Amino acid sequence: MNSEKENFHQKIDIKKSFFYRFSQFVGFLLGARFFVAALLTFALYVSTYFLFNQDETFRKFVFDFKVHGIIFCTVLTILAGGIINQFYDFEKDHVVKPFRTRLQSFIKQKYFLYVYLFFSIISLGIAWMISHRVFVFFIVYQFFMWFYSHKLSRILILNNITFVSLTLYPFFGMMVYYGTFSKKVLLMAIFLFLILLCIDIVKDTLTKSVDRAFDYITIPNYFKSKNSRIIIISLLIITIAVSMKLILRTGISGFMAYYFSGGLFVFILCIYLLLNQSRKSNFVTLNILRFWVFVGIIAMLLNGLEGKL
């Protein structure tokens, strides 16, 4: 009888231990923004091969270990940036994202910092082996990742511009690496910058009361709701203008032409939703814009495959 009770308790302890370890693992993935890093890595590979890489064959690209090294350093830096960002935003996330914070609580904050240092050092070590210029590139990237989390995320306008710029920084690096400078690439970069800026400001509208409580000065909690809405709608109108310029003046074709044409209707829909002046409309707008960025990555992939075949 006692042995049966002991076996029963052992099974419960094993289940608790498994749940604890699993929660630690999931908490780490969320703390490091692993899924965001995975999406950015996919986008970086797609844009590098199909947009920036104009001359290399697929075989040469696969065996270009310098490019893979740069992208790997980028992934480590993004993961490290996610960790340091959640370290500084822990109190705010406790209110805004209670479920994620609960999972992260299974791991002590000092272990997150150890992993942050590990990822940063490994990234810089690999960058040094590639070239001194790449090393400097990632030193700058990591510094601004930390500085954004430590200081800039609380400063009006700079928080949004810095966040979007850091998101696009690796793509700019690959563009410089391949020397791919053209009107089309420039307009696509402006388009992506604008849509990501809209996403970040709309996201701030959903957390403006919490941001105000924790001294994050954002556009929605500094300006009135009406003015914030005007700013977002103005950015969307400029994005529409850039889309039309891409369609009419750059000779863009294939799936990307369909993507930018479809974007005109998507942005008009977002403007209509924002005019409703409700939290639900802002939430729907945020997810539509995020989804449209993902659609853009897929469209670039399909367009590139069509052109390479």
Results as ranks from 00 to 15, higher is better:
residue 1 M to P: 07
residue 3 S to G: 03
residue 4 E to L: 11
residue 5 K to I: 11
residue 7 N to F: 01
residue 8 F to I: 09
residue 10 Q to W: 12
residue 19 F to D: 11
residue 21 R to V: 14
residue 22 F to Y: 11
residue 26 V to A: 04
residue 29 L to A: 07
residue 34 F to W: 09
residue 34 F to K: 07
residue 36 V to A: 06
residue 41 T to W: 14
residue 46 V to K: 14
residue 49 Y to D: 12
residue 50 F to H: 08
residue 53 N to M: 07
residue 56 E to D: 08
residue 56 E to R: 05
residue 57 T to W: 07
residue 58 F to K: 05
residue 62 V to M: 15
residue 62 V to Y: 14
residue 62 V to D: 09
residue 66 K to Q: 14
residue 67 V to M: 14
residue 68 H to C: 07
residue 68 H to V: 04
residue 70 I to G: 12
residue 73 C to F: 06
residue 74 T to P: 02
residue 80 A to V: 00
residue 86 Q to L: 01
residue 89 D to Q: 04
residue 91 E to M: 01
residue 91 E to Q: 06
residue 95 V to Q: 09
residue 102 R to H: 06
residue 103 L to T: 02
residue 104 Q to G: 14
residue 111 Y to H: 13
residue 111 Y to F: 10
residue 112 F to R: 05
residue 119 F to K: 09
residue 120 S to E: 05
residue 124 L to A: 05
residue 125 G to S: 07
residue 126 I to F: 02
residue 127 A to V: 05
residue 127 A to D: 00
residue 128 W to M: 11
residue 130 I to H: 03
residue 131 S to M: 11
residue 132 H to V: 10
residue 133 R to F: 07
residue 135 F to Y: 11
residue 135 F to G: 02
residue 137 F to Q: 08
residue 145 M to G: 02
residue 146 W to M: 02
residue 147 F to M: 12
residue 148 Y to G: 02
residue 156 L to R: 04
residue 167 T to W: 05
residue 168 L to F: 08
residue 168 L to H: 08
residue 169 Y to V: 12
residue 172 F to A: 15
residue 172 F to K: 05
residue 175 M to P: 04
residue 183 K to Y: 14
residue 186 L to W: 13
residue 186 L to Y: 14
residue 187 L to D: 03
residue 188 M to L: 11
residue 191 F to N: 12
residue 192 L to D: 12
residue 199 I to E: 13
residue 200 D to P: 00
residue 201 I to S: 10
residue 203 K to N: 04
residue 204 D to Q: 05
residue 205 T to E: 14
residue 205 T to I: 05
residue 207 T to V: 03
residue 210 V to K: 03
residue 213 A to S: 11
residue 217 I to P: 00
residue 219 I to A: 06
residue 223 F to P: 01
residue 223 F to A: 14
residue 226 K to C: 00
residue 228 S to C: 13
residue 234 S to L: 01
residue 236 L to Y: 09
residue 237 I to F: 10
residue 238 I to Q: 00
residue 238 I to K: 00
residue 239 T to E: 15
residue 242 V to D: 06
residue 242 V to L: 02
residue 242 V to W: 05
residue 246 L to W: 04
residue 247 I to Q: 10
residue 251 G to Y: 08
residue 252 I to W: 09
residue 258 Y to V: 04
residue 261 S to R: 12
residue 264 L to W: 08
residue 264 L to A: 08
residue 264 L to Q: 09
residue 265 F to E: 13
residue 265 F to R: 02
residue 266 V to E: 12
residue 266 V to T: 15
residue 269 L to R: 15
residue 271 I to S: 15
residue 272 Y to S: 10
residue 272 Y to M: 12
residue 281 S to E: 07
residue 284 V to N: 07
residue 285 T to A: 13
residue 286 L to V: 02
residue 292 W to S: 13
residue 293 V to R: 10
residue 293 V to A: 13
residue 300 M to K: 04
residue 300 M to G: 09
residue 300 M to P: 01
residue 302 L to Y: 10
residue 304 G to A: 07
residue 309 L to D: 02
